[in-house]
Nucleic acid binder design. Structure first.
Lengths: 358, 358
DNA sequence: CTGAAAGCGCTTACAG
DNA sequence: CTGAAAGCGCTTACAG
C-alpha cells in the first residue's frame, strides 16, 4: 500500500473512512474484534483443525467483513517461502516466449504460485541482474527461457539456493534442470521431409545469434543430408537474426546464388516470414518455385499465405513442463531433470515437390 | 528459499557447505562479521550519508563477499511498499497483450519495480481473484489490460487501496485511471481511407466479445459512413470473435451476400488474418477483388501477403504510459488520469481502389 | 481448543 | 557517527 490519500480525486465512491483504515487490517485487528488472541486468528484463517469449527467460522466471517487480506510478505518471512516464482525471458513480445510464459503461468496459478516476469533483452548482464533481483524477492524457483548466460555465469546462478530450470537454454549447462525442444531430431525430420518431396538443393537459413538452438538445428540438417548421401554445400547456408529482417537479407544471398536452392529450411517461423517476403519480392512463388519450412509453429503460421509447413514446438506445454519440474523439485525430488520435448512436423502448403528434377 | 538439500544430485559443484548457510545471510550475520550493530549494517547497505564512508565501504565489501541479498519481504514489511506491481492480462499469448506487457515491464524495471503477471483468460471472476491475490502481495499498483470486469465489480477493485490503471478496458469505469486507444477516431480514419479509395460497400467485421472496443470501432465506422452520406447497410456488419477462426466464418457470411462488400474493415489484425484466408479460399484476390484493413498493427502484419493496411496501436508505448501513470500516482499526483492514445493508419498493400465503380 | 511468547529480517526514531 | 529498542504482520512451538 502507498501512503493514504494517493487516490486523490478518486475517493468519491468510498465507504466512510472509519471502515477503511489507512493500513490494511491485520490479524491483530481481527483478533481485537473477535476477542481472541491473534494466534487464534492466524490458525482460524488457515482452517487449522485444531481450532473449534465455531470460532473458525466466526473469525472468517469477521475477517471477510473487514476486508482482511493476509500479508504475503509477513507470512513468507516466517515460512521462508514466497509462493512465488521468477520467470526471466529474452523478450515477452516474442510470440514463442509468450506462449511458453502462458503455460508457466497456467500451472503456477493452478498451484497457488504467483509469477514475476522480467525481460533480459537477451543481454547476459541483464539476465543476471534480474535473477539477482528475484533472489532478493526470495522466489521459490526460477525459470529462464533461452538463457544467454554463458558458462562463466552459470556458477553465479547456481550459487543462489534457488532451483533453476532452463527452457531452451542457449548454453549447455550441467548445473541446472532443463526443458528443451529436440532440435536435432526435429530438423532432421524437417529436412528429410524436404528430401522426400524430391529436393536436392536445400538451404539452411540460420540464426547467427541462435547459439545452441541454431547449432543443433543446423546439425540435424547436416545429418539428414549425410544420411541421404547428399554432398553438403556451404553456400547453401546463410544466417539471419531469427527475425524477419535478418532472414530477408540471408534469403537474398541464397536466391542470388548461381544455383539457388529449391527449398529453404528456416531456423524459425519468424525467419520464414522474412524469407517468404524476400522470395515473393523476386516474383517467385511459394511453393511452386521454392519451398519454405519453418520452426516453432507460431499461432499465426497456419494463417500465412501459403500456410507454413513447420516444426511445432508445443510452447504452452513446454511452459507447463518447466513449471511442473519446479514443483517436483519443491516436493523434494532430488533428481536432475533434463526433459527433451519432441518437435512435430506440421505439413501445410509452403513446401511441395521441386519444379524440375535436378 | 526452499528447504536445504532440495537441489539433490546437483550439489556437485558447490562451494564447501561452510560458506553457504542453509538460510541466506541476514543483516545480523553481516553485523557479527563486521563487529557493528545490525542497524549500522542496514544503513551502510543503503548508502546512508549518516554513516562514515569507511564503514560503509567495509560493510558493503563484507556483504558482497558473503553473498548477502536483502530480503524484500522483510523490508517491505516495514516500509509498507513492495516495489512491485501486478499486471493482469486476458492472455499473455495474445500478441497485442504481449506488446503492452513488454512496455510495462520496461518502464517498471527502469524504476526498480518488479512485475507480477497473471492471466485472467478474460473471465471476470478470475480477473478479480488474481487482483485479490495481488492485494495480498501488497503490490504498489495494478494494471489491467482489456478488463472484463463489469460495473458491479469495479467497486471491489476500487476498494482495494491500490491504484489501478486500466488499459483498453472493456467497461467504462469512472473509478480507475485509464489508458485507451482512440478507437472511434482511428476507425473513422480507416473507414474514410477506404472511402477515399472509392469503396462504397464497406463491411465491418467486428468482435462479438469485444465490448467497448468493438462498440467504439463500430461507431467510428458508422460515423464515416454517415459523414460521407452513405446509407448504412446492416447486412454489411458481421461479428467474429477477435480471432482468425471466428473472423473466417464472419467473412464467409459477408462474401456470400448477393452484393458482397468490396472492402472489409476488421476489428483487429487477428480477424483480418482470418478474413484474408477466407477470401483467398474463395479464389478472390486481395486487394484486387476485395480490400482488407485491420486494427493493431501487430509485428507480423507487415510481413503478411499482402502486407496489411491497418491502424497502429503503439502497444509498447501504451504499456510505458500505463506504468508511467502509476508512477505519477505513486508520486502523489491526485489527478484522475484518462489518457487517450491516437491510432495511426498504416497504409500498406491490402487495400486498393475497388475493381468496378458501383 | 486457546493464549503468550519468540522470532522471521528488516527500518527507523531515539539516545548517546 | 553508532547502537539499543521497538515494531512491521505474520507463524509456530510451548504451555495450559
Amino acid at each position: 500500500m502507498r501512503q493514504p490519500g494517493s487516490f486523490g480525486t478518486l475517493v468519491t465512491d468510498r465507504r466512510p473512512s472509519s471502515s477503511i483504515p489507512a493500513k490494511p487490517a491485520s490479524i491483530k485487528d481481527i483478533a481485537r474484534i473477535a476477542g481472541v488472541a491473534h494466534s487464534t486468528v492466524s490458525r482460524a484463517l488457515r482452517n487449522s483443525p485444531v481450532v473449534s469449527r465455531e470460532t473458525v467460522e466466526r473469525i472468517q466471517r469477521i475477517a471477510g467483513e473487514a476486508g482482511y487480506r493476509t500479508s504475503a510478505a509477513a507470512r513468507s518471512l516466517v515460512t521462508r517461502r514466497s509462493d512465488t516464482i521468477g520467470v526471466v525471458v529474452t523478450n515477452i513480445a516474442d510470440p514463442f516466449v509468450a506462449g511458453v510464459v502462458s503455460g508457466i503461468e497456467e500451472t503456477a496459478d493452478r498451484h497457488g504460485l504467483s509469477v514475476f516476469l522480467a525481460n533480459s533483452n537477451a543481454e547476459p548482464e541483464r539476465e543476471l541482474r534480474v535473477a539477482r533481483k528475484f533472489e532478493e524477492r526470495r522466489v521459490d524457483g526460477i525459470i529462464v527461457t533461452a538463457s544467454r548466460v554463458g558458462d562463466q555465469y552459470v556458477p553465479l546462478l547456481t550459487h543462489m539456493q534457488v532451483p533453476i530450470v532452463l527452457l531452451n537454454n542457449q548454453h549447455p549447462s550441467q548445473f541446472a534442470h532443463s526443458v528443451m525442444i529436440a532440435n536435432t531430431q526435429a530438423s532432421l525430420d524437417a529436412t528429410r521431409y524436404l528430401m522426400a518431396l524430391g529436393h536436392r538443393r536445400i538451404a539452411y537459413l540460420g540464426d547467427r545469434q541462435g547459439y545452441q538452438s541454431d547449432t543443433e538445428r543446423y546439425a540435424g540438417y547436416r545429418s539428414a543430408l549425410k544420411e541421404a548421401g547428399l554432398r553438403f554445400e556451404p553456400r547453401l547456408v546463410a544466417h539471419g537474426d531469427g527475425k524477419p529482417e535478418g532472414a530477408e537479407k540471408a534469403a537474398a544471398e541464397l536466391l542470388a546464388l548461381p544455383q539457388p536452392p529449391t527449398a529453404i529450411f528456416c531456423y524459425n517461423d519468424m525467419s520464414a516470414l522474412g524469407a517468404m517476403r524476400q522470395i515473393r519480392s523476386r516474383g517467385l512463388a511459394i511453393p511452386a518455385d521454392i519451398s519454405v519450412v519453418g520452426f516453432d509453429d507460431l499461432y499465426i503460421s497456419q494463417y500465412l499465405n501459403p500456410p507454413l509447413t513447420t516444426v511445432r514446438q508445443p510452447m504452452r506445454q513446454m511452459g507447463n513442463l518447466a513449471m511442473e519440474t519446479l514443483l517436483q523439485i519443491f516436493a523434494g525430488c532430488g533428481l536432475r531433470h533434463d526433459i527433451k520435448v519432441p518437435g512435430e512436423l506440421i505439413v501445410r502448403a509452403s513446401a511441395a515437390p521441386p519444379k524440375e528434377k535436378q
